[in-house]
Design a protein around this nucleic acid. Structure first.
Length: 459
RNA sequence: UCCCCAGUAGCUCAGUCGGCAGAGCAAGUGGCUGUUAACCACUGGGUCCGCGGUUCAAAUCCGUGCUGGGGAGCCA
């Protein structure tokens, strides 16, 4: 008989004569004459209650079913006389598909996130992580929906790259050379390597995306990104997913409009299409989450120049551990003060000093600042980082010279400024940080299936 | 990478001044009940993170390493 998803059964508005469900048992409770089981199949947060009478031919088997076991049940969907659930299945047959022995690590009680991280291969069988990864899936679709509706083209930029996108951040090397052998000679033989030159995992698809924005108009990438920084924080992983829109004929204001629209769309989508799972997070993970989500949805995001933000911090009278200094990048505590205490809502910080930003950001008319923009949100900090790109060939070349970037490595990038260059803008949004924001989960390792961090690549 | 904290039963944790290794939950067995983080009783379960040191005696004090957590830097 064809399997039916529990999500569908729980949403039913009438009895069903004969259905088959398959899933994993969360808990079993016995009576003398019958046994109750809570069955979950991952289709939704809720379980369906199974009742098995001792008149079943294999009732002894049913009594051996343990937490974590996989079973297949056929029976009638009937209104439950007990409290706590609308429907239950009165079983005509219960078949054990896969028994889980007593050392099954998940108990029918709350486990710590730290413990569940050590059994990341099983944690998605818990309520919280099941909900998390359903939301993660739904948010991925929402991103594609958003861009498709807006006429953006989905672009697949390379994972392996020869270019060092921003000259910032440590990169993972990609090689077929034997590290032991190359250690003997004392230096790497790139000419003998697969690509004949140094190759790395991408830290951003931006430069490639710019080329396609200048052809297809509006494009976006959404894929894995790699940073080999030795960052040990709750907001960093070595492999993460990033959304990077790139828009032709778009200035900094348009860039911010787009970021705000995207974020609001995604929050709306989560609340509309993941309401049951979202409810778990607003109720149990973070009591203040609903308020944060309301703010994200209903407030107009602040837009403030870097220099004005620095003035504001200096005048705040607030004692910071690190002094606020003009020309320096803001510290985490400064960003948090602005987003969480001063404005109490998301804010775009724009027009940073040129000295602390990469070469491709457009130089403003004041000559001191560039058209950079970061979106800061409460708790997470920076969730979006972007800029209007420098579209003027001479200015771009000058900036590259200042930063000692070899022009020949970027010949193709510079070509885009020689042939029909136009103002354009874009940004990167960390997908995991988005998930943290909308679920209230505070550790990035808990929003990605198998996190990769320094010294840790299990699973 | 730096600063701080932690590591004791399957899980969460207590363990006082250095003096016999503990609780709750889970698991196993039995009982009871349209049950629902069921309930009641009994039972089993330990490399006190590893290594070294101090001491008559170390879970406890000292050193060191490993692992995890929080914060910082870097960033998304």
């Amino acid at each position: 008989m064809e399997r039916i998803k529990i999500k569908k059964l729980l949403a039913s508005d009438s009895e069903m004569g004969r259905v088959t469900v398959k899933g994993w048992v969360r808990t079993r409770r016995d009576s003398k004459g019958f046994s109750f089981m809570e069955l979950n199949d991952g289709s939704c947060l809720g379980n369906i209650q199974i009742i098995a009478d001792n008149t079943l031919p294999n009732y002894a088997d049913a009594l051996s079913i343990t937490t974590g076991s996989a079973i297949s049940v056929t029976g009638k969907l009937i209104p439950s006389p007990g409290k706590g659930q609308k429907w239950e299945i009165h079983a005509d047959s219960v078949e054990i598909v896969g028994q889980a022995p007593e050392d099954y690590p998940l108990q029918k009680k709350r486990h710590s996130d730290e413990f569940l991280r050590k059994i990341a291969h099983l944690r998605s069988r818990t309520n919280k992580y099941g909900a998390m990864f359903r939301i993660r899936s739904e948010m991925s679709w929402a991103i594609h929906n958003f861009y498709r509706e807006k006429g953006f083209r989905y672009l697949h930029t390379p994972i392996i790259t020869g270019s060092d996108c921003e000259g910032a951040g440590e990169m993972f090397r990609v090689t077929v050379l034997d590290p032991v052998a190359s250690g003997k000679t004392g230096k790497a033989d790139y000419a003998g390597d697969f690509f004949g030159q140094e190759a790395n995992l991408t830290v951003s698809g931006q430069l490639s995306a710019e080329m396609f924005a200048l052809a297809l108009g509006d494009v976006y990438t959404f894929g894995p990104t790699f940073r080999a920084e030795n960052s040990n924080t709750s907001r960093h992983v070595a492999e993460f997913w990033m959304v990077e829109p790139e828009m032709a004929f778009c200035d900094l204001q348009g860039n911010m409009d787009h970021g705000e629209e995207l974020l609001k769309y995604l929050v709306t989508h989560a609340l509309e299409f993941c309401s049951e799972d979202m409810n778990l997070f607003t109720s149990f993970v973070d009591k203040g989450l609903q308020k944060v989500l309301n703010t994200l949805l209903n407030e107009t995001y602040e837009r403030i120049n870097y220099e004005d933000a620095v003035d504001l911090l200096l005048k705040s009278g607030r004692e910071f551990e690190y002094k606020v200094e003009k020309g320096m990048d803001l510290q985490s505590e400064h960003e948090r003060f602005l987003a969480e205490e001063y404005f109490k809502k998301p804010l775009f910080l724009m027009n940073y000093p040129r000295g602390i930003k990469p070469f491709y950001m457009r130089l403003n008319d004041d000559g001191r600042t560039v058209a950079a923009v970061d979106l800061l949100v409460p708790r997470i900090g920076e969730i979006i980082g972007g800029s209007q790109r420098e579209e003027r060939l001479e200015m771009l070349e000058k900036r590259m010279e200042e930063m000692n970037l070899p022009r020949e490595n970027y010949w193709w990038y510079l070509d885009s400024r020689r042939f029909g260059s136009v103002p354009h803008s874009g940004f990167g949004m960390g997908f995991e940080r988005l998930l943290m924001l909308i679920t209230g989960v505070t550790n990035i390792r808990d929003v990605i299936p198998f996190p990769r961090t320094p010294g840790s690549i299990d699973f």
